[in-house]
Design a protein around this nucleic acid. Structure first.
Lengths: 246, 246
DNA sequence: CGCTGGGTTGATCGGTGTCAATTCGTGTGG
DNA sequence: CCACACGAATTGACACCGATCAACCCAGCG
């Protein structure tokens, strides 16, 4: 018997347990899958647009982003990912990546062969369905971003992103009270919001000056959740934080 | 034996055959599922935000849209759907709808119980995986929209949407040469683009005046695909129109 | 034959982008 | 240890894309 140290996938376990009933058996199956751990420096490309995939990666630590590039050289971040997120699980279904995924900070991931995941769908259908659920939740987050980009003022958009990040990080145990690590630059945030750096900075100052939050030294503090969430019109329904049997 | 007239789901069949190998058996299984056909007038709500779902609907005819509402009373369309699209398949995984789906024109749908789809995943895993693929493709489309909203000028955004619609409609046999039925109003289009009606109209005039397209009498004509696609920076990779075994 | 919804146009306003410069902290080589 | 480069955050001035407000036209229709 080969002794392997299993990577710590507890963020994924927390993610799933918050939303569904994960049995002890299912948890054990997940933990003992043949994960391959990889470590990435900041600003590296985990997968590249056009790449044909045979494995998918679970994020263990750090922040990653899906990026879309436009002719002018600008870029737009279409998704922001945190530990517990299965960052390219959809490649199991689509095979070819239609976008790149980059690390915004140093990251570690655990990858697993598509073949293993496919076998799982036969042996553990409910577990497999939960993984598909994570794809659907990512899509729900994208819809919220579309509404923001299309119809919200910059400051409101930014407020909503802070609320969303807080709730998502809280789910996987990465908040401490009302604060959380946010080791991104304002340039990265601008690419999330679809704004210029200058305006990102000014929008941030609005939220700060109202005393709702602070963001310095790579840490964000939510000082007034109620006001922030109300201003943002934040409704966490789309994060699917209710526990159902799915 | 109960004789039932099977609804015409050939748009879905075309959608799948364009992207994967759909066996004769799988096609027969799909066609003979216990679909329930429903007809909807324009501007009706097929499913409502917050609704708990036990079935999913395949679109047979017309145009539908996912809508997000904001406090000001404005709305943003987060997805535009056409025949062959499984409009709320993700509710199989999420149970509760996080947004509403409305008809933009008179529509017909065929709905199927979640229980049936779950049984399918055991008996026809590949077929089931193809259905999951449609969820992933919808998400890819959403990412393209995010890039548009965040980083593209209105006219470029509009041009891209025309390209996307053309390709998607072509896939399910709903184009005739270089034209297609587009029975939407400019108000609806504005909600897709996240623009005001006035500016939507002016952006459209730009594309028209350059001789790239026309859109009147509920029909769109692409007069110069090459120029339009180049201006839009349109790359259909994200539509996953390549046939792979998935 | 007037009402209504959809499309179009003009004038003006405002949110956000662009350009440019300053400050500050940090790492690095002399 | 200091000089310097560099990235990140910040600020001011100005330009511009798209929103808003207000008409007007036109076709369909009661």
């Amino acid at each position: 018997m080969v002794a392997m140290t299993e990577p710590d996938i507890s963020a994924l376990i927390l993610y799933l347990k918050r939303r569904d009933d994960l049995s002890t058996d299912e948890e054990m199956v997940l933990r003992s899958l043949p994960w391959r751990v990889k470590n990435w420096p900041a600003a590296s490309e985990i997968v590249r647009e056009g790449q044909k995939m045979q494995e998918s990666s679970l994020q263990l630590s750090g922040f990653t982003a899906r990026v879309g590039h436009v002719a002018s050289g600008d870029r737009q971040i279409t998704g922001l990912h945190i530990p517990g997120d299965f960052i390219d699980l959809h490649s199991l279904l689509l095979k070819v990546m239609d976008h790149s995924i980059i690390t915004l900070t140093p990251c570690s991931t655990a990858s697993i062969d598509h073949a293993v995941l496919q076998r799982l769908s036969a042996t553990h259908p409910h577990l497999s369905r939960m993984l598909m659920m994570t794809i659907a939740i990512d899509a729900a987050v994208q819809r919220a971003w579309i509404v923001d980009l299309g119809r919200h003022l910059a400051s409101k958009h930014m407020a909503r992103i802070f609320c969303e990040l807080f709730k998502r990080l809280e789910t996987v145990g990465l908040t401490a009270g009302s604060s959380f690590e946010l080791p991104l630059t304002q340039v990265m945030f601008a690419d999330v919001l679809g704004l210029s750096i200058v305006h990102t900075n000014r929008s941030l100052q609005q939220l700060r000056s109202r005393g709702w939050l602070e963001w310095s030294d790579k840490t964000a503090y939510i000082h007034d959740w109620a006001s922030l969430a109300e201003f943002a019109g934040f409704d966490p329904l789309y994060l699917n934080l209710q526990r159902y049997h799915r």
